[in-house]
Design a protein around this nucleic acid. Structure first.
Length: 263
DNA sequence: ATGGTGGGTAGCCCA
């Protein structure tokens, strides 16, 4: 059994104690982090080393974005894409070498699309769509069992947001984003493990705004995802999201997801 | 309830 987790931590240095608690309580073999908000030299390596996560890759950036994959099973760095072609640190891929040998684990932080869902007035929205387009062309050529995880910043299904109709023009749930993400899914036949194991419309939101009104009203969205190649999806034995971390003191606005594989 | 909260950084950007 190999257990893989993903979590947008929103500053790994600020929340390293929460990461340690999560690793102790949930004991995943591999953890993919997004929004670490630091460069590799300031990454809290010691905390992971102490808990046995001796294999690490960090694709960091000062202050913004940044991803890292840490593991207690061996891997090798496999890929590092700049799909937005602007130098932002939003992806790192590894190939598992021990248990789960041959599986490729791609950790991605898809850019948030800004406020206005129109690329003519908001360049960020266009950049998100372009990022997805480049990922789609990449996915079309994949020939390995691959697990794609991370903060996608898109809630695809109606039940993935607290109010589908109210969010149709809100970035993260617009029909254009959902269609564009759908083309990425279809390019490889990815299986959405969140909905494979927790069928719609069962609750599995992964993000709640820091803004108090939305938080108090329990207005969540499912922005974080784990997608598996079809053959790898058949080896997934269980999946859960750890909603309780959102109630920890000074939490990330995202919660972790965990999938167990028979590998 | 299209307002407001949080993180990193440095005199705002990003989410």
């Amino acid at each position: 059994m190999v257990t893989i987790a993903t979590w947008n931590i929103n500053s790994v240095r600020l929340r390293i104690a929460q990461v340690e608690r999560f690793l102790v309580e949930q004991a995943p073999d591999v953890l993919c982090l997004q929004e670490i908000k630091t460069v590799e030299s300031l990454f809290p390596h010691e905390a992971f080393e102490k808990l046995g996560y001796t294999h690490r890759v960090v694709h960091g950036q000062k202050g913004y974005h940044g991803v890292a994959t840490v593991s207690r099973i061996p891997f090798r760095e496999f890929s590092k894409h700049d799909w937005q072609d602007n130098g932002e640190a939003r992806h790192i891929g590894v190939e598992l070498l021990g248990p789960g040998q041959g599986v490729v684990l791609e950790n991605v932080y898809i850019p948030a699309g800004g406020d206005v869902p129109d690329r003519e007035v908001n360049a960020k929205f266009g950049q998100t769509l372009d990022f997805l387009g480049r990922m789609t062309r990449w996915a079309d050529k994949l020939d390995r069992p691959t697990l794609l995880v991370g903060d996608f910043n898109i809630a695809p299904l109606e039940c993935d947001v607290y109010d589908h109709k109210a969010l149709l023009k809100v970035v993260s749930h617009t029909p254009l984003e959902v269609e564009t993400l759908g083309r990425l899914r279809d390019a490889h036949g990815w299986v959405d493990l969140g909905r494979h194991h927790i069928p719609a419309p069962e609750r599995n939101w992964t993000w709640w705004s820091y803004r108090t009104f939305w938080q108090e009203k329990d207005r969540g969205r499912r922005l974080d995802h784990m997608w598996a190649s079809p053959e790898l999806a058949r080896q997934s034995a269980g999946h859960r999201f750890v909603e309780e971390t959102r109630r920890w003191e000074q939490p990330s606005d995202h919660v972790p997801l965990i999938t167990e594989f028979d590998l």
